[in-house]
Design a protein around this nucleic acid. Sequence first.
RNA 1: GGAUGGGUGGCCGAGUGGUUUAAGGCACCGGUCUUGAAAACCGGCGUGGCGGCAACGUCACCGUGAGUUCGAAUCUCACCCCAUCCGCCA
Length: 425
Amino acid sequence: MLDIKSIRDNPEIFDQGWGRRGLAPQTPAILELDGRRRACQTRLQELLARRNDASRQIGEAKRKGENADALMAEVATLKTEIPRLEEEERQSAAELDSLLAGLPNLPAADCPDGPDETANVEVRRWGTPPNFDFKPREHFEIGEALGMMDFAAAAKLSGARFVVLKGALARLERALGAFMLDLHTSEHGYREVSPPLLVRDEAMFGTGQLPKFAADFFRTTSEHSLIPTAEVPLTNLHLGDILDEDKLPLRYTALTPCFRSEAGAAGKDTRGMIRQHQFMKVEIVSLTTPETAEAELARLTGCAEEVLRRLGLAYRVVMLSTGDMGFSSRKTYDIEVWLPGQGQFREISSCSHFGDFQARRMKTRYRPAAGKETRFVHTLNGSGLAVGRTLIAVLENYQQVDGSVIVPEALRPYMGGLERIIAHG
RNA sequence: GGAUGGGUGGCCGAGUGGUUUAAGGCACCGGUCUUGAAAACCGGCGUGGCGGCAACGUCACCGUGAGUUCGAAUCUCACCCCAUCCGCCA
């Protein structure tokens, strides 16, 4: 949610920013509604003031036993006008709110302009993709051959886009999650959280999933939503709060299942476990002051990259173009891991800086150490990392010609010392 | 699912129809005093609209919405949320 006052002051900046995301100018409609709303409010308050004044005089007159009929008649005429103005004011306010709530954040100045992912800009690479003296297989071929990745069983239970992991692969998923959490909590200063997976609309609104993207996640009959990412509960931990500056930055991490309906993804990544309705993910979230947010994005992205470095997986970092960025984001770096089976880099993390866009929706403010005016915090988050896709990367990068998979050094303590995953006999 | 209690400013908390411009306290900010600090005292201290260069003035806002009334934080109804107890349950 963007600030109506800023929009009033500098409409051209907003239209320009939205224009970079491919939107037509929005401010004429916004300013028109805003003007209408304020005009109604002004007129309404004039009438209310007059009514209150008259009512006071009526009370006084009655106490003195005087006649107040004229005043009462005047109030009666005001009462036909007031409800009409109230209704008009409420309606234009609601229209303005829903218009603003549906508009995306402005991209940062250094985001590359472009219509989609083809305009993303690679900013760095780490590691070298492994060489194979055989044709590397895709993760689902490896997993099924091991007898530990069962799409048929998942289809019976739940349908398409689900998977059953068994044996060492089930443990590998658990090991990856534990490894990532340990890294972020003990070395990167994030506080581990075990949050609810079902949240209210209020929380989904706060981080920007609602009102626009209701089709992307699942809803229960209890009017809860299943979280599409732990970003939702972690960021909304401070919904409505006013924090002291010395509490910032706040850094949280959580390992949770994530649920996505993948509406509109028909035909994309239908094989394997790249794109699922349910997957495990470690999320990292920071709440900061405006001054430190940009540095925090670099730090947070580095924390996510560190997971891949420890696992010895080659990756690159790309800065998303204005056409590929998420709704709430002002700037996003994607981390893409090398997948030998596919012969390409695939997204494994998305690290974003939201400015005060989410904080305005959540009403999360802080009180600066100097001065007492509250300010909105800045929020950031990133995957650190998507566990399912990391599992895919481990399988494809560490696969052996005999179909076995070497367990990366860093994960062995979490696998009971296991060095190699071999087929279930 | 059933019952009861409750939602007032950053926090606590008073307030059951018109001297409430929302008491009082805490926290915070400025000042007086002090070698400095603390204490004490004085003042300030929410959000939004409108007018004004500004100081400031003014109006609205007591969970949300509707209603009663000349007038509602206060009365009525509906809804939302929180707490406690009972039932069920990992």
